[in-house]
């Protein structure tokens, strides 16, 4: 039942320095980290593999300088990867001509930027309509479209404002409206909320989820904030020093961190929110007395009051409604205090 892969990226490298292509060849396309250091090259992205599926929110997460922006720019071909293979809907992205690329970007891709990247001389409406403008859509049509988008992001009444007259959050709403105006299939967001203060950031995340519930785009979302990643992601790829160290659902990351680096991130995460009953339950349903049945997809947080209040364990049901395990107050407490689960 897995959805088809929309963007497939295999063995992608981006190496900065003199003659990167030659350098890659000298090491058979797989230099080690120490090879890079010795040659004085910067391996911004190293052997990255990601498959982004249709309609999912794929978050790329990592500390500053870990190569997230570089990777996403390789995926959108804003920069050319040094090595590797990227397929977009089964077309070789790296083999496309400039003209094909322009066409692709005009119809299939949208991108939101960390510093908003609005054009200072255009109004909200004109900024939003900009991608249509460069396509040569006539003014009436594009303004109608842009107005819809402005409304969608909640900026109606400010169509004629200039970017400098807007707050950061409002500016990013314009950035979002602009990236959506062409109805792209693939939507890139490079740390879209990092320049905003925490309250606004949460508000924008909610807004983002609301939009996605409406639009069902395929999304590549970059962040360095693990909380944000957890909140938004269907799947997360964690990057470190240019390499992807783990790709998994938020829950799997917490349950089975690939290494200490990932674990460090997950340590301060409110687990009860992320974990579903089905992943923390005790497997097997022995005969006995139960307080009731709970859906396995529920998060621990939502079920915690019920479980705690009952003096008997609950049965946990899988997707088909079949009981597959049990859960009691003790397990829930373990999850809540972050005791290592095995």
């Amino acid at each position: 039942m897995q959805r088809p892969v929309k963007l497939d990226c295999r063995g992608v490298w981006k190496v900065y320095g003199p003659n990167p292509a030659e350098f890659m060849q000298a090491y058979d396309g797989a230099p080690s980290d120490s090879d890079l250091t010795h040659a004085g090259m910067i391996g911004a992205v190293r052997d990255a593999n990601v498959q982004i599926r249709d309609g999912e929110i794929f978050v790329i997460m990592g500390l500053s300088g870990s190569g997230k922006s570089t990777l996403v720019r390789c995926l959108s071909r804003l920069i050319d990867a040094t090595a590797g293979q990227i397929n977009f809907e089964d077309n070789d992205l790296l083999a496309m001509s400039e003209k094909e690329l322009i066409d692709l970007r005009r119809t299939k891709m949208g991108m939101v930027f960390q510093q908003f990247a609005l054009l200072p001389h255009l109004t909200v409406l004109q900024n939003t309509a900009f991608p249509l403008d460069v396509q040569g859509v006539d003014r009436k049509t594009r303004e109608v479209r842009a107005r819809e988008m402005v409304e969608l992001v909640g900026l109606q009444g400010r169509e004629d404002y200039f970017p400098r007259q807007l707050s950061g959050g409002q500016q990013q709403r314009v950035g979002i409206a602009r990236s959506l105006v062409t109805e792209p299939d693939l939507w890139f967001l490079d740390e879209p909320f990092s320049a905003l203060d925490p309250l606004i950031r949460r508000e924008m995340q909610d807004e983002f989820l609301r939009l996605q519930a409406l639009l069902h785009k395929t999304i590549v979302f970059i962040t360095h904030d693990f909380d944000e990643a957890i909140r938004l992601a269907d799947r997360i790829a964690v990057m470190k020093d240019g390499r992807i160290v783990q790709t998994a659902t938020p829950e799997e990351l917490i349950l089975n961190p690939a290494d200490e680096y990932v674990e460090e991130f997950t340590r301060h995460i409110p687990r009860a929110k992320v974990m579903r009953l089905i992943s923390v339950m005790t497997k097997g349903v022995p005969e006995g007395d139960y307080a009731g049945d709970l859906d396995g997809d529920l998060s621990v947080e939502t079920a915690v009051d019920q479980i705690e209040a009952a003096d008997k364990p609950f049965r946990v049901l899988d997707e088909a409604g079949k009981p597959v395990g049990t859960i009691n107050a003790q397990t829930v407490i373990d999850v809540l205090i972050g005791r290592r689960l095995t």
Binding site: R73, S76, L78, I102, D103, R105, R106, M109, G110, M111, F113, A117, L118, L119, F130, P131, V134, Q135, R178, S179, F188
Partner: peptide, 9 residues
């Protein structure tokens, strides 16, 4: 980059 992504020639 925003210009490029908008499909500017």
């Amino acid at each position: 980059e925003a210009g490029t992504m908008a499909g500017c020639t």
